[in-house]
Amino acid sequence: MTRSSIELGDVTPHNIKQLKKLNTVVFPVSYNDKFYVDVLEAGELAKLAYYNDIVVGAVCCRIDSTENQRRLYIMTLGCLSPYRRLGIGTVMFEHILNYAENDGNFDSIFLHVQINNNGAIEFYKKFGFEIVDTKEQYYKRIEPADAHVLQKTLRRKNTPPNSHHQNHHLTNGAVNEKKERRT
């Protein structure tokens, strides 16, 4: 295999239309202007993925504080179809996971997936996600309309006020293991 490079880059007002274009072709739903305004403020939570210097993927997340928890919500994570199974999704996800783990104050990462999107489900399962819920009629204009909620539980570094105590040692262990795997 010829060496190809995969890199992540920031979303800026200059290249935001590339993100729009990408989302338009990767996802069956389109996003409103506010989505893109927020993305510009999202910092490390929104990234473009470059394959040999071409934008081929993007990830956009936000912090969700509903249900008395602090969770990282993956709004979009996608890759142009000719560029799938090349590890680009992995690079984007690991960036997000890294962010969450370094932050240390997230209960979990979660997202919605159309129930028939087996590829994506496989992908997330590989990273330890589980289907924790299924929302019926989640989508209005696409079929099937139901969505799974996929979630990966994280361990918080600092004890949050209304959460039970967690094993410190284990948390660090998890982070280290992650780092080793990446190198």
Partner: peptide
């Protein structure tokens, strides 16, 4: 409208 997720799309 959907499922209480304000702007979660997919």
């Amino acid at each position: 409208e959907s499922a209480g997720m304000a702007d979660a799309a997919f």
